[in-house]
Amino acid sequence: MKKGRVWKYGDNVNTDVIFPGKYTYSVLEPEEMARHALEDLDPDFALNVKPGDIIIAGRNFGCGSSREQAATCLKYVGVQAVIARSFARIFFRNAINQGLPALQSEEAVDSIKDREEIEIDFSLGEIKAKKGVYKFSPFPESVLGILEEGGLIPYTKKKLETK
């Protein structure tokens, strides 16, 4: 389990500021998508983020478009997990389907500060921070399997092979 530095943002971080629409059909490789992560929200993010870093945000993270690149770019720029008060439903699905944990914890969002170093224990369902340890809501079984396989594509591939 690796420590990660926190990048903290507000409510309603939408897919357009996570991955601008103008790139949706011109930027195709995940590594290139990563270079545009959060471009219209925080231009410093993609330049300074380190593998294992964690995004913490408020309500409705990922609202807007169904574009999966919003999850893909965060995963490939090295984000370990996104913690939020709530997620927009399509983003939540996309994150899981990209193998990017999307964790809900009000307490963690309230207590953890920008740039703080925290640790996530996925097996215990805990976020360990300076001020305390916070539980996150466990995943339903339907999504746990997908996350364990590293995303929906490898999950479906395996399912098709074992049929």
Partner: peptide, 14 residues
């Protein structure tokens, strides 16, 4: 309802 790309790919197959 709207869904993502991986889900549509998976739906095409399964």
């Amino acid at each position: 309802a709207g869904i993502g790309r991986s889900e549509v790919a998976s739906l095409w197959a399964t």
